[in-house]
Design a binder for these strands. Sequence first.
DNA 1: CTTGACCTTAGATTTAACTCTAAGGTTTAT
DNA 2: ATAAACCTTAGAGTTAAATCTAAGGTCAAG
Lengths: 152, 152
Amino acid sequence: MYRIGELAKVCEVKTDTLRFYEKHGLLAPSSRTESGYRIYTQTDADRLRFILRAKAVGFTLAEISELLSIELDKANWACADVKGLVDDKLSHVEQKIAELERFRRSLSSLSQACCGGPESAEHCSILEALETNCDQIRCENHRHDAKQTHKQ
Amino acid sequence: MYRIGELAKVCEVKTDTLRFYEKHGLLAPSSRTESGYRIYTQTDADRLRFILRAKAVGFTLAEISELLSIELDKANWACADVKGLVDDKLSHVEQKIAELERFRRSLSSLSQACCGGPESAEHCSILEALETNCDQIRCENHRHDAKQTHKQ
DNA sequence: CTTGACCTTAGATTTAACTCTAAGGTTTAT
DNA sequence: ATAAACCTTAGAGTTAAATCTAAGGTCAAG
């Protein structure tokens, strides 16, 4: 049995976060004291740790809600459902990594092109690259390309 | 000379975006027609392309503001200043990639552990991993660790 | 019996970068 | 001369996940 501050401390989150999770249907305390204080059981704490682990692998709170509803009704779900969620997330993460890798390569090549010295920036290769359509900058990165190109 | 819709079209952004950039001090049209329509010059268009290239390498609009103020006053800045901005961004991007790589590894190992079949999720390895403190989930990822650990 | 730590609520604020809405004025083509 | 396409403004909404504020109630220690 924990009060909100105690559970927050053992799980290293803020009390605000626990209230936020409650408001969003992820984690409600099993009961309240007469005066209205939240009382969390060990089961509640386990559920919180489930949430935090899911966050640690990159799931959003909305996705965690899905996972939790499966978790509470396992018998009516298949492994395929769970693996589907994981694989969707995985491909999303991989896409994001690819975008950041493009950033990294561009930035790294910009950085290498610049002397980085105390010289005036008047002939700085970085600025020149940003002024020009150059191959140091990979531009295949319009995030919501389809939407962008379509309407507008 | 472009009106807002024309510039938007050639640069593949929305008119909303151009107004937004103006409101935030990144790009103002050089003049207006009598009736108040924005008129952008070629110089304005070049500036917009500078902004879009900077976005394409991952800079935020706030960072792009900095770059632009350097760009407009190059003589009073050193290469070191410009390279500093790029290198800061680079290390930030690398940190973000590292976090996503942790997500990717965790998700991938969760995915591999699960049969993904039509079997009931009652013994799903993914759910079991999320229920337990297991090594498939790399938890060294508290984003703003210092802050988190400090107060609260 | 009061101080300080803890708890309650509702609601506002934060961040980033747009995106959308409403209500209306302007230009261009037919 | 009128319809379509374009433009104007101010301001609200979106997303995610908290974080903060104000105003106040509860509880244990000294």
